[in-house]
Simulated scan of single mutants.
Amino acid sequence: MNIARDSDIVELDGPPSFEYGQKVRAKINIRNDGTFPGKEIGEVLVKKGDEGYVVSIGTFLQQFYIYGVDFVAQGRIVGMKRKELLPVEAATPSEQEVA
């Protein structure tokens, strides 16, 4: 049986998937696991589709990158794993308005 677990993956062998200031989108609802102060355990902090900006990049268990994402509309910064995020593509120059 070949079972892939988070514990089998070491992201720190490579560079972070996201950069400081990069716009990202939540792939799933994120609930408070007890580490977010002022909110009840299980309370939704970020909804699927919410967009924010990477403001910090840390590590967890010497294995994973944890991205501090500032969800401006929600007024909170939430730590998230790579698998919980999608990049929001920047508009190409041809799609941008020319002033």
Results as ranks from 00 to 15, higher is better:
Phe60Asp: 12
Ala73Leu: 09
Tyr20Ala: 03
Glu51Gln: 11
Pro37Met: 03
Pro15Ala: 13
Glu43Ser: 14
Val55Gln: 04
Ser7Gly: 05
Ala4Val: 14
Ser7Pro: 05
Glu19Ser: 03
Pro37Asp: 08
Ala73Ile: 09
Gly68Ser: 08
Gln74Gly: 11
Ile77Val: 15
Asp50Val: 09
Ser17Lys: 12
Gly42Ser: 07
Arg25Ala: 14
Phe36Pro: 04
Tyr67Ile: 12
Lys39Asn: 10
Gln63Cys: 02
Asp8Trp: 08
Leu12Ile: 14
Gly34Phe: 11
Gly42Leu: 05
Ile57Leu: 05
Glu43Ala: 15
Asp70Ser: 15
Gly21Tyr: 07
Gly14Thr: 14
Gly38Met: 12
Glu19Tyr: 01
Asn29Tyr: 00
Asp6Ala: 15
Asp8Ile: 10
Ser17His: 13
Gly14Lys: 11
Asp8His: 11
Tyr20Arg: 10
Lys27Val: 01
Val46Thr: 01
Leu12Glu: 08
Gly75Glu: 08
Lys48Pro: 03
Ser17Arg: 10
Glu11Met: 07
Ile77Tyr: 05
Gly75Asn: 09
Gly52Asn: 03
Lys47Thr: 13
Arg76His: 13
Gly68Ile: 10
Gly68Leu: 02
Gly34Trp: 10
Ile28Gln: 15
Gly42Arg: 03
Gly68Gln: 02
Lys27Trp: 05
Gln74Asp: 10
Lys47Ala: 11
Phe71Leu: 00
Asn29His: 00
Pro15Tyr: 06
Glu51Leu: 03
